[in-house]
Simulated scan of single mutants.
Amino acid sequence: MNHKGFGYHPIFIPNDHKQTFSEMNIDQKNQISHKIKDFKKLIQFINNRNF
């Protein structure tokens, strides 16, 4: 088991994957990360606002 990452990363294997989060590279993590998806939605929301 790879021990990179933090918290649950060394033990969590996302659905339909064969690697733990700590074994994935950053590009693989970003494809499934809820944080990245939410951040992109936030950027889109901000860009569509008239300040």
Rank of each mutant, 00 (worst) to 15 (best):
19 Q>A: 13
49 R>W: 06
16 D>G: 02
46 I>R: 15
33 S>H: 06
29 K>V: 04
29 K>G: 00
31 Q>T: 12
42 L>R: 10
35 K>W: 05
19 Q>V: 03
11 I>V: 13
24 M>I: 01
10 P>W: 08
28 Q>E: 15
42 L>A: 08
51 F>K: 15
3 H>A: 14
4 K>Y: 08
35 K>A: 07
50 N>V: 14
44 Q>V: 03
40 K>H: 05
8 Y>H: 10
50 N>G: 06
11 I>S: 08
21 F>C: 10
13 I>M: 08
3 H>G: 11
8 Y>L: 15
48 N>S: 15
30 N>R: 15
48 N>M: 04
14 P>V: 04
2 N>M: 07
13 I>L: 07
36 I>H: 03
30 N>D: 15
26 I>Q: 14
18 K>P: 00
42 L>K: 10
12 F>H: 13
20 T>K: 12
7 G>K: 12
1 M>D: 00
23 E>N: 10
46 I>D: 07
45 F>E: 07
43 I>W: 02
43 I>R: 08
49 R>E: 03
20 T>G: 02
3 H>W: 14
22 S>N: 06
4 K>L: 07
6 F>L: 13
25 N>Y: 06
34 H>M: 11
20 T>M: 05
18 K>C: 06
6 F>V: 14
21 F>Q: 03
36 I>N: 03
1 M>N: 06
2 N>D: 15
26 I>N: 10
19 Q>L: 15
49 R>Y: 07
22 S>H: 02
4 K>T: 03
41 K>V: 03
16 D>V: 02
5 G>P: 05
20 T>Q: 10
28 Q>C: 02
